[in-house]
């Protein structure tokens, strides 16, 4: 427990330093923050333009998709905010910067995740939250305790699943330094996927992101339950509540992958 607390504290200390370093360039910071907000909003504007031409996409109305968009954005946004820069691991190994981080009396994962931390990365969760609030307002749902629970579950487990993806896939870079781009297709590609209703995609892809990379548990399955929609894969209803288990398993697997990677790095030096 003390170890975990120290992992969080040391991350916070290093992240605060990066934040201070970034604000050293004030003008640029404001513009970059504005740009980040715009970048995040781009794909929502695309959705709006699509709905300028139709009122349903894959059978879903805009506020329903807004629910998906908001929860997906919060999931990847929060994960990226806390530990997104772990994907620069290969670069840090190449330049030898990782060795310097390993000299600090703190867990390597905390130090790597805090690298280049910036408040700018709050843009995505902030924009996604705004869309989510609008969607909840526009949907006019009849709230029951299980729906509240499902929503809360998405907001907690979503970031954990994406965080596990960031860390787990980055661990591959201990063995193969150039895996970063491939990892982007799972993380950022995955987040794009989850912004749209599952009914839009081919069955094989749905199977892949349910049983392979467990993206479907981030928001698709719980949202189907909240909206009372049928599951295109026809999975048992219990799957819609399985996110906490999946998140815990994913986090555990990511932790093991990171350990294995770090051990390999320290014992092979490659």
């Amino acid at each position: 427990m003390a170890e975990l607390r120290w992992a969080v504290t040391s991350w916070r200390l290093a992240a605060a330093m990066w934040m201070r370093a970034a604000t050293a360039y004030r003008t640029s910071f404001v513009l970059l923050a504005a740009a980040s907000l715009l970048v995040c909003s781009l794909d929502f504007v695309v959705l709006l333009l699509m709905f300028h031409h139709t009122d349903r996409l894959g059978g879903w109305r805009l506020p329903e998709i807004g629910l998906l968009y908001g929860t997906a954005g919060i999931a990847i946004g929060v994960a990226d905010f806390l530990l997104g820069t772990v994907d620069g691991l290969g670069e840090r190994i190449r330049t030898g910067a990782l060795d310097t981080l390993l000299l600090r009396p703190a867990p390597a994962l905390s130090m790597v995740c805090a690298e280049r931390f910036t408040l700018r990365r709050l843009a995505r969760p902030a924009q996604a939250t705004a869309v989510l609030l609008w969607a909840l307002h526009a949907l006019d749902l009849h709230w029951s305790w299980d729906k509240v629970l499902l929503l809360a579950m998405m907001l907690v487990c979503g970031p954990v699943i994406f965080g596990a993806l960031f860390v787990g896939l980055s661990s591959v870079q201990f063995f193969w330094g150039e895996a970063r781009e491939l990892q982007n297709s799972a993380t950022y590609g995955g987040a794009t996927l989850l912004q749209y209703p599952p009914d839009v995609f081919a069955r094989d892809l749905l199977l892949g992101v349910t049983f392979g990379v467990p993206l479907a548990f981030v928001n698709w399955l719980p949202t189907l339950q909240i909206l009372g929609r049928p599951d295109p894969l026809g999975l048992p209803v219990v799957c819609r509540f399985a996110a906490p288990l999946v998140a815990a398993a994913a986090a555990g697997a990511a932790g093991l992958a990171w350990r294995a990677g770090l051990r390999a790095y320290r014992s092979t030096g490659s």
Binding site: S10, R20, A106
Partner: peptide, 30 residues
Amino acid sequence: ARRIGVVFGQRTTLWWDLPLRDSYELARRL
């Protein structure tokens, strides 16, 4: 790491964009 000190002549562990004092302050807490 708490019992040793390391200096690499060709690589600094200090924070490039921040005053020296800030690096020391971080060391104090880490």
